[in-house]
């Protein structure tokens, strides 16, 4: 479960100070599917980075279960990201020189999994997203939807508690968008994940159990 208490985040940009999050307090129970919507620059991605232990708040507290994400050192945060949190990005963010299978394996690298086990689990994860026969292809040989499936496999191969998706369908056509959301929703149901999706797309947001709206750094429930 996520707990955010009075979280604010400000950035210094040139000589200006930008407030990305302003006094945000909320809890996200384990296993919930949450959609975060809002205008560009409203603070969606910043909130997702707080939840993903990629950044710390300027003020306030962020906790994932017992882990105080706002206070842990970088090394511990990296460990939490490695074990408990999966990421899916709008631009897929695959390593261009690695094959689909190897890209999935990168998620297991920090966990110290043996090479054979890594290969087995990555193959299995690729199969679960419908790309069992594409393991040897590099990203440039795959379509956008296939690349996003590889990214989802990479996020899920370590069996995380949380899956954070930042505009996961933003670069995809409608059909592929629906396929990807079907996949994510299915995985969420099957695995009991906490799934948090940042999206502009209302069609995607409608699938969520809970919808949050963020504007000018302030979060409201819808």
């Amino acid at each position: 479960m996520y707990t955010l208490e009075h979280v604010s985040k400000t950035y210094a940009q040139s000589k200006r100070r930008i407030t990305a999050l302003q006094d945000v307090s909320l809890t996200i129970p384990k296993g919930q599917l949450v959609a975060i919507q809002g205008p560009t620059g409203g603070g969606k991605s910043t909130l997702l980075q707080m939840l993903g232990a990629l950044d710390r708040p300027s003020i306030g507290r962020v906790a994932l279960g017992e882990a105080e994400l706002s206070h842990l050192p970088d090394r511990r945060l990296a460990g939490i990201r490695a074990k408990e949190i999966g990421f899916v990005f709008q631009g897929f963010n695959l390593i261009p020189t690695l094959t689909a299978l190897e890209n999935v394996e990168t998620a297991l690298e920090p966990l110290g999994v043996s090479a054979d086990e890594r290969r087995r689990r990555a193959t299995e994860a690729l199969g679960s997203v419908g790309l069992g026969d594409r393991g040897g292809h590099v990203p440039s040989e795959l379509s956008g939807g296939q690349q996003q499936r590889v990214a989802i496999a990479r996020a899920l191969v370590k069996e995380p508690d949380v899956l954070l998706a930042d505009e996961p369908t933003g670069n995809l056509d409608e059909q592929t968008r629906d396929d990807i959301m079907d996949l994510l929703e299915g995985l969420w149901r099957d695995r009991g994940l906490t799934l948090i999706v940042v999206t502009h797309d209302s069609a995607v947001a409608k699938r969520a159990e809970r919808r949050l709206h963020i504007r000018d750094g302030a979060v409201t429930e819808r």
């Binding site: 970088d74 990296a78 990421f87 390593i95 920090p110 966990l111």
Partner: peptide, 16 residues
């Protein structure tokens, strides 16, 4: 940058 940022996001330590 994106590649290393992604790797760090999925848990790769600085040392790695």
């Amino acid at each position: 940058t994106r590649e290393f940022g992604t790797l760090k996001a999925i848990g790769w330590s600085n040392g790695r």
